[in-house]
Design a protein around this nucleic acid. Structure first.
Length: 101
DNA sequence: CAATTGACGGGTG
DNA sequence: GCACCCGCCAATT
């Protein structure tokens, strides 16, 4: 259970570092974990891991909620102060797609 | 064991 | 914005 490949644990560690109201992307998590272009791995892990990680704070590069339950994800994000519109993150304290105009 | 699929990303037209 | 292609890895079928 908590035991898994080093990649998994590394990525999970990054996910757990996400704070409330903080949103990041799959690719960003993968890169920070040390696995650039490995975004798919992040999504795969979030979909299978038993770890207690804030999966709802992770969206795709386009800022679109792509979780198994996008409705719940939107609800959770909105609940944390993140602006979500039409299943898409409009603004977030992130540096990647933070309303750069 | 081979093929398919998926909570993806980036590039191109 | 939409359609396609390629890369990448693991779970499922």
């Amino acid at each position: 259970m908590t035991t898994g490949s080093e990649r998994e644990q590394r990525i999970l560690a990054v996910l757990m570092s996400l704070a409330e109201g903080e949103v990041t992307t799959y690719g960003d998590v993968a890169e920070v974990a040390g696995y650039p272009t490995q975004a798919r791995l992040v999504g795969r892990i979030l979909a299978t891991t038993d770890w207690d990680v804030p999966w709802w704070r992770v969206v795709n590069a386009a800022g679109v909620l792509r979780a198994s339950d996008p409705r719940q994800q939107a609800e959770l994000l909105t609940s944390e102060g993140v602006i979500v519109r039409s299943g898409r993150v409009i603004d977030a304290p992130i540096g990647r797609f933070s309303c750069d105009a």
